[in-house]
């Protein structure tokens, strides 16, 4: 009886079995890169909003403090989204004929909220509290990036667990003096690690990496 397969098939099958290891590893690697890519994490991707609100204008050009609008950031888990009244504090007089502000005026007139699109969203199984972070020397820009340079708001970080743990394992890399938390211009000093260590001691920062710190 004649051979069905040619002798070279032996080599081919050996190569295929050996190559499968690399194919599987390649697929896993590609998936790993994909889930960390901005396509999935939305890092650095501007979010389209009903009103093209510019943090660059309000923070950088006008010098308005973060807390003017995000009023509860120091006392609550949620930083606070300003009601339309806060917009109208100034825009009752300023840019009243601007077409981009039409949804704001409509909201103020009808008492219907502006439906902003969420930029930084954590999964519901993560507990996060703004107040403890800003009261322990974690600055706004540490997580939110240079908001004063963002015409449209975008995620400045992946918000993935490895990113959280980077700081939770060693906060000294990122903490800053409390009076600089809301500064947009603060830059880590050359001796950040040593200065950070001092602040960690001074502010009694506990490096919390228990599962239940965030997953509770």
């Amino acid at each position: 009886m004649a051979q069905i397969f040619h002798r070279s098939t032996n080599t081919l099958s050996r190569v295929t079995i050996f190559g499968a290891v690399f194919i599987v590893a390649g697929i896993l690697g590609a998936v790993g890169i994909f889930v960390r890519s901005p396509y999935v994490t939305r890092e650095g991707v501007p979010v389209v909003q009903p009103v093209p609100f510019s943090h660059k204008h309000h923070v950088n050009d006008d010098g308005i403090d973060c807390r003017y609008c995000h009023t509860s950031v120091e006392v609550s888990s949620f930083a606070g989204m300003p009601p339309t009244e806060t917009c109208m504090n100034c825009h009752s007089q300023l840019f009243t004929t601007s077409p981009v502000l039409v949804p704001v005026f409509a909201s103020a007139r009808t008492d219907m909220p502006i439906q902003w699109n969420r930029v930084n969203q954590l999964p519901d199984f993560v507990y996060f509290d703004h107040s403890i972070h800003v009261n322990k020397g974690v600055g706004c820009t540490t997580c939110h990036g240079q908001v004063d340079q963002m015409p449209l708001m975008m995620r400045a970080a992946s918000l993935q667990m490895t990113w959280c743990l980077d700081c939770h394992r060693d906060p000294a890399k990122y903490v800053r003096p409390l009076d600089q938390v809301f500064s947009m211009t603060w830059q880590p000093p050359a001796d950040q690690l040593e200065a950070g260590k001092k602040l960690v001691t001074e502010y009694h920062i506990e490096s919390k990496t228990n599962c239940s710190t965030c997953h509770r």
Partner: peptide, 25 residues
């Protein structure tokens, strides 16, 4: 004061904050 008041009333309290400079009278 510098968070909530200075945008309009100015850091000096003279009513010349940035919002006033933009035309809020």
């Amino acid at each position: 004061y510098n968070i909530y008041c200075a945008p309009c009333h100015g850091a000096l309290g003279n009513g010349q904050g940035v919002v006033a400079q933009r035309g809020f009278c």
